[in-house]
Every structure is written in structure tokens, then in C-alpha cells.
Design a protein around this nucleic acid. Sequence first.
DNA 1: TTTTATTATCACCTTTTGGTGATAAGTGTT
DNA 2: AACACTTATCACCAAAAGGTGATAATAAAA
Lengths: 209, 209
Amino acid sequence: MEEKPEAGSQRNKARSKQRFLDAVGEIINTVGFSGLKVNDIARVAGLDKKLMYNYFGGRDELIDEYIRTKDFWTNVKGDSENPLPKDGGREFSKSMLLSQFEYVFKNEEMQKILLWGLLEDRNELKKLAQAREDSGALIFEAITDPHFGDQAKRYRAVTALMVAGIYYLDIYASTQTATFCGLDLKSNEGRKEIEEAITFLIDKTYDDR
Amino acid sequence: MEEKPEAGSQRNKARSKQRFLDAVGEIINTVGFSGLKVNDIARVAGLDKKLMYNYFGGRDELIDEYIRTKDFWTNVKGDSENPLPKDGGREFSKSMLLSQFEYVFKNEEMQKILLWGLLEDRNELKKLAQAREDSGALIFEAITDPHFGDQAKRYRAVTALMVAGIYYLDIYASTQTATFCGLDLKSNEGRKEIEEAITFLIDKTYDDR
DNA sequence: TTTTATTATCACCTTTTGGTGATAAGTGTT
DNA sequence: AACACTTATCACCAAAAGGTGATAATAAAA
């Protein structure tokens, strides 16, 4: 009953489990959610499907485990012990939104996860959405709520619109060929317009307080 | 070779076709896109699947026809012969965005279509996206572009963020139980915050010109 | 080396799904 | 009534998909 075979050995439970998880990601990125069939996952993983049942319990449990590995947000909050910014978080907000705009655009796997959360009411996806909320709450409560005072909800609503808009526009850019409001969201020009609008709107919101 | 049997007759091609189209909508709204299986569509329609092949050619063609019936946007542009508003479209923009926010929230079928456009690269869905663009272009070119002049693209980018944000938030509200940026998008309070933010941001954008 | 436990594959089964030819049941015409 | 035409159902097939017991191959322990 040994637990840690050498890395190069032919038989390795941990490595096989990872191959199944990787296969899920690859299928989602290439074929889409509808491609997550038992036989196809096993084929992409290069292993027998029986192992999937042995190691995870079944396809659903494998997918849940995959989702759990994709918690992109818990990493974000890392710098929570920074000193309180003097500008009430104005520059922090702008750079956070702009980096989200770029990050989601480049990270198709993240786009898929976001979409997935709007499609299926799978429990693990709800947990992920909740994790995003918890992560964001830390920032709101520590930085922007104190700064905006009784206007705190106004700022949250503005942020909600921006974040949601960023998500949608990035996903749209990756999947649709058409423009959006006449802007080419794939081009540098189009994206620059959006970035400037984000900066503009956040500035106006801070100016108004 | 009579073409129009009485409405109450047992055999009626037009009515049967409509039943298939309705079945597609019902399945999308209850089960989701993954539920669009040939046998299930026929079962929900209450007809034999063979008719689906006879009348539409197959499932894909049926679905395409369904999508074609869901062109929500061509109806919107109805009032294009209105006189040019003196405020550069400020109030028009606000009321349009606010009514979109409410309309999409209440119309789950529309949410599904929007989501679908981000998921599959089906040709009919691209056409729908293009139709939205064409419809919006009329408003931009007639009203807001002239008003904003060399800032026209700035306004378009702001609108893009708002519209995209509205879509995402409404879909999120219908599918996720969690809050978004701490706001309960299902509640009147939460939605009021968003509405006020929309009004605020559009006003600031017009004020800045 | 033999033994034991783990890792992996294989063959096989059942259910689901997509698809179609043959045929029945209405509908209107002559 | 006999006829032709349209509408609808049925029985059936093939392929795809999910799922599992038996068994082989490997690695570690005895």
C-alpha cells in the first residue's frame, strides 16, 4: 500500500487523476461543455474510463473537482494587508477593472467558467460565485465603503455594472464576430475605447462624492 | 392539394410546425440547451419525430427556424421617424437602458438567446447579433454620434459597457442565487441601485461633453 | 521469489439517441 | 364510392453514450 510512486513510473494514480482534470479543461476550451462525454474525456485523458469512476466516482464528481481547481478569485485578494489608499481606492479600482478586462479577455478558460455559472445550476459553480462575492466584499468593506459613506451602494452598483459589462464584452469578443455598439472588441482601438470609458466612469463616480 | 385545413381539424401542417417551434422554446426555458434532443422535442411537441424531419429537415434546421422567430430587436427601432431630441438623446438613452434592464430581466427566453450567442457559433445566432448591431447603429448614427462629435466613440464605449453589464446582471440574477458586488439583483432595492447607477453614469457622460 | 495491493485495460452490457422506410389515418376531389 | 394527396404514426435500425465485472500488468512488501 505505497502512496507515492516515482514520477517517471508507468502507473501513477495522482498523475492519472490530473490527466482527467486536464482533459476536462481541454474539452471545455476546444469543444465546449456539450463535449464533456464520458468516453471523450477518457479518450482525451488517454486512460480508460473505468478509472474515472474509480478515482472520482463518475463524470459529475470529476467535473466538480475540476471546477474546484479553477478558483481564480481567491488568488486576487492577496494584497489585503496593504495600507489604506489615500484616494479612497480610486486608482486601485481603475487598475483592478482594467486588469480584469485584460485578464478575462486572454483567459478563455475563465470565460467558460463565467458562462457556465450562468448556464447550469451546479452546486460547485454557485460556490465559485460565492467565493467571488466573498473576495470582493473584503475590498468593498475595507476601502470603498468607508470612502463613499452613505453613497457606498451607489459605488457598488457602478462597479457591478462595470464588472458585469467587462465579463460580457470579453466573452462576446471571444465568441462573436460582430461588433458591439459598433466597436470592434477584438481590436486594440476598440478595447482602448472601452478602457478609457472605464477610467472615465470610475473617475466621475469618485468626483461626484 | 388543399393548403388550409380548418383550425379544429386533426391534421394541420402549419399547426404542427408551430408545435415543434414551441417545444424548442419550452425545452430551452425549462431544461436548457442540452435538453434539445430529437426525441424530447418530439415528445414535448406531442408529435412524431419523423414530422420534424419532414417539415424542417432535421433538428438543426428546426432550431435555426426557432432562432429566426426570436428577433427581439427589429421591433425596437420602430420609432425611428421621431424628431431629433434637443438633449442629444440623453433622456432617450436613459429610458432605453432602463427599459432594457427591466425587459431582459423579465424575459427569460431573451436571456437564453443572449447566452446562446455566447456559447455556440451557430450562424443564425450570429445573424441575430448582427441584427442587434444594425438596429443600434441607426440610433447611434442618427442621434448620439452627431451630439457627441469627436467624442462619439467615448459614448459608444460607455453604452457598450452599460448594455453588456445590463445583460450580464439580468442573466446572473435569473440563474445565480448569490449577490453581485453585494447587491441582491432580484430585489427591488438591488435593482433600484443599478437603475440609479445607470442614470447617474449616463448623465455624467452627457455632462462631460 | 513469492505474495499482495494498486493501477490500468478489456470486453461486454444497457440505455439513450438520431434517423428512416413502411404504413395508417385523415382530407378534399372526382 | 373511389381516388389521390397530405398528415401523422409506428416499428425498427444503427450509432453513440453511460456504466461495470473480470482480468491483466505493474510495483512494492514479505
